[in-house]
Every structure is written in structure tokens, then in C-alpha cells.
Design a protein around this nucleic acid. Structure first.
Lengths: 254, 254
DNA sequence: CCCAATTTGTTCGTATGTATC
DNA sequence: AGATACATACGAACAAATTGG
């Protein structure tokens, strides 16, 4: 039925072709977030296909986070910036079966966080600094309970997310935020097994305090160096923790 | 009609609920790639909904790259590892409106490539080394034409992709491959504007040759150091190139 | 090679909710 | 408030693909 059938053993669905066509159309016409796509009727005659096929293509674009579809008159598909949450979720799907280990995550973190800190140092405003200080202060009082300890651990990670969001390299910003989200989920997931690690919390608090000073002084070099030491320390403690968990797992059952 | 209507102003579609349920089902039952999902009929009675709704949910999972759907007896949806190409494409959607600049990409590259080189140094086998050598040799003869120059440029990038694929940190491997894919597209897109840059090609060839030696000797430290210098050099040349392009753009028209 | 069983894929018609004018 | 346009959801019938005898 199609001339492509001889070259391509795998049939390419019409809806997917339309998705690609629409993407090209967006790129070559320089369409921006907020711009409207042609409505259903126009797309149907443009691509000479049924209403269902167009709807399937739009549906696919929606799942990818590229458009949102509004109901009502003058509704239809409008272009959207892909929200971080969507991109994050799709990347996590990819990593689910790859199972990155704790050490792998921390190794990447050690590479990127110092640079993020250096870039953020030059861009943090008073609001950001206040937010960071609040997060640091929340970790200062010794935790009284299990939940409180976990809450402090998440506040620590939030400190890094704030830095990532203020970093003006979009790729570094994404990776930084993504890594901290992953670690947050690890913390929550392993919460039943999470031992005390008082030393770890103290070290983190100290580093964050010093980092805050460097940020206030807008000292990028100091921030980079402090963050590097902070990450190496965290990497060390994580290795220790995983060793403990392994031992506990081996001795308890199985 | 729904108790959620008070807390959540935004109605959550049934199909999306089913998607989330299936994802949870996969995680808690430890399903692996190749395992089959329940077929349409079972899903319909499981979720008490129509065939169309189930199909929409499966469609969504397919767009996300999590399942592939086959027809016929013993057909249905089977779990898939999300292929790199899918994850890459979805992340590029996210970055499309963020427009990472050349310098931003190269800055991240300078951070991750040295580590990738160090990790790869310990894992490259004879086949990999032969492949790398072939790619280096392809760049040795001076390019005679425009297309040949571009082909060499792409072979240079392929060198880095091979390293990324052999790196045993899945997150680093993904980022490394992704960055080189992005640069490849930049090269192809800007091909009309690509000036000669003989020095750049020579420097790259020299670094790749030295790196190959280090890989043969399984010298991770040397590989890391060489790659760092290589990346700093590339970052420098890219800055120069963008300066030239900017000047050319300003003087030619507009 | 064809037939039959099985399972997905497509296309109707219809009803209902919901946002916009 | 009412009319309109669109999305969502359902059901049933039919089409297409794949497998195994």
C-alpha cells in the first residue's frame, strides 16, 4: 500500500508520522510556547486522515509534554515548554531497568555539584540566600525522631535543588536537580533501613554553613572548592552506609 | 461525583490513573523487560472501564517507550527497556525551548568526558580499540571537500560515543552520549556556516591519538588528564568559532 | 498453503461532562 | 443561563495481524 514497505520491514504508523511532521512544523516555523497548533479540522485536511488518527497524534504529543489540550471553543492544542517534572519522569523510566547504583549517582554528583555551586554563587539573590539559610537552620537542631531525621535529610537535598535552579546552565541545572530528586527517592525508599549517621549530618551541616558564607561573599572559587569537599565527604559516607546495609542484609535473613 | 474533586481542581483522566496503576504494578511485582502485561480483556475487567480507555493507557506507555504492543495470539503489551534513542528524544523535547548555548554544552562536556575516559580505560576490549583506531584514522587524511570535513567531524564525535557506551556508570554513559549527539546535530545544522578550523581538527586528531595510546596501556589517570586538556581545547575553539559566526552574522546582513 | 483461533487495531454511533462565549 | 464546541468514555461491530495446526 505504501512505497516505504519495501525498504522498511517495520510498518511506521501514520499517527507517528504526523507527530514527526508537527514537530518539524514547530521547529521550522519557530513556534513558541503558548502558540496554537492548527485545530483538528485543519490537521485532518492537512494530513488527509481521520479524526481519530489526528487525535492519536495529539495525544502522543501531550504524553511527551509538548502540548496541552484545552477543551471548549477556541480550544485545541497549544505548545508548552516541557515541564521539568515531565522530563524527569521520562528519564526515570529509562533508568528504571538500568538501576544506577548509589556510588554511580554520587560519582556524577561529585562532578557536577561543584560547578553548579560556582555558577550559582554569582547569581543568588537575597531571597535565595534567605531560603538557603532557612533550610540550613532546619537541620541545626538535633533530630528527635525518625521522621524528623528524614525531614532534615530532605531539607539538605533541597539546599542543592535551590542551587541547581539558580544555575544559568540549563543542562547542568537539569542534571543537578534530577540527581537530588533521585537521592531523595532513595532516602524515602530506604527509610526503613536508614541508620542514624550522626557524623554525616554534622558534616553536611558544617559544609552547608560554610557554603552559605561563600555564597554571601559571592566567592565562586571558594564555593566550588567547598562543594567538592562536601561531595567527596558525602560519597564517603554513602559508601560506608551501603557497606552497613549490605552487612545487615547478609546477617539478618536469606 | 468524585471525592477527589474538592482537593484537586484538575480532573485526572481515567487513562492516566490506569497508567500509574500499571507502573506501580510493574514496580511492586518486580516485572522485568520481556514480561507480559495482562491483555486488553483482563485489563478491562481489572479497571472496570471500556476497551478504548485501556487502549489509551497502553498507548501512553508505548509513547513513553515502556512497552511494545504486538498483535496476534500470545500478543499484547510486553515490557521493554526504554531504548536510549527514546530517552534521548524526550530529553531533547525538554531542552528545545530552553536552548542550551554552545558554551553551556561544552562546559558540561568538560566536566564529564574526563571521568568517562578514565572509566572506559579499564573496560575497553580489543574490538573497541580497533573501532577507535578506525575512527581516528578516518580523520588523519586532510579533508578534500566540505562533506568530507563534516564526515570527519562526526567521526571525531563517534570516538566519544564509543567511550560513553563502554563506561560502566549508566548515568554518565547516558549524559556523555547525549552531549555528543547534541553537538553532532549542531554541526549538521550549522554546516552551511562551518568554516575551515584546520587547527581545531589537528588538535583533535592529536588528542585522540594520544588518548588511544593511553587506552591501550589501560592508563586511566593519563586518559583522564588527556581528555581534560582535549575538552578545554575544544571549549576554546568553540568560543572562537562562535565569535567568528557572530561577527559574520553581524556584518553580512541584518 | 490455507484455515481457524486469538488478540490487537479501527471505526462507527451515542451519551455525558465541561469550559467558553 | 443557555448554546456551542470539544474532550472523555462506552459499546459493538468489523478489520488486520500473527500463530499453530
Amino acid at each position: 500500500m505504501n512505497q516505504q514497505d519495501f525498504v522498511s520491514p517495520k510498518r511506521i504508523k501514520r499517527a507517528d508520522q504526523i507527530v514527526e511532521s508537527i514537530k518539524r512544523w514547530v521547529v521550522v516555523n519557530g513556534k513558541q510556547p503558548g502558540d496554537r497548533l492548527p485545530n483538528e479540522k485543519e490537521l485532518i485536511e492537512q494530513f488527509e486522515c481521520s479524526k481519530g488518527t489526528v487525535r492519536e497524534a495529539l495525544k502522543s504529543l501531550e504524553v511527551q509534554g509538548l502540548v496541552s489540550i484545552r477543551t471548549g471553543p477556541n480550544g485545541g492544542a497549544i505548545l508548552e515548554r516541557v515541564p521539568y517534572e515531565k522530563a524527569s519522569q521520562l528519564l526515570r523510566n529509562f533508568l528504571h531497568f538500568e538501576q544506577p547504583s548509589g556510588p554511580e549517582i554520587y560519582a556524577l554528583r561529585t562532578l557536577v555539584e561543584p560547578e553548579i555551586a560556582a555558577l550559582a554563587a554569582e547569581r543568588l539573590n537575597q531571597d535565595d540566600l534567605a531560603k538557603l539559610e532557612a533550610l540550613v537552620e532546619r537541620c541545626r537542631a538535633p533530630a528527635q525522631s525518625f521522621d524528623e531525621r528524614m525531614e532534615q535529610r530532605i531539607a539538605e537535598l533541597e539546599f542543592h535543588v535551590v542551587l541547581a535552579q539558580r544555575c544559568d546552565n540549563v543542562m547542568l541545572a537539569f542534571i543537578g536537580r534530577f540527581i537530588n530528586d533521585m537521592i531523595r527517592d532513595l532516602v524515602i525508599f530506604k527509610k526503613a533501613q536508614l541508620p542514624e549517621q550522626q557524623e554525616f549530618s554534622c558534616a553536611n551541616l558544617e559544609y552547608h554553613t560554610k557554603l552559605l558564607e561563600a555564597f554571601r561573599a559571592r566567592d565562586a572559587q571558594a564555593a566550588r572548592q567547598l562543594m567538592l569537599e562536601h561531595m567527596q565527604s558525602a560519597e564517603h559516607f554513602n559508601r560506608e552506609l551501603e557497606g552497613q546495609l549490605q552487612k545487615h542484609f547478609l546477617s539478618s535473613d536469606h
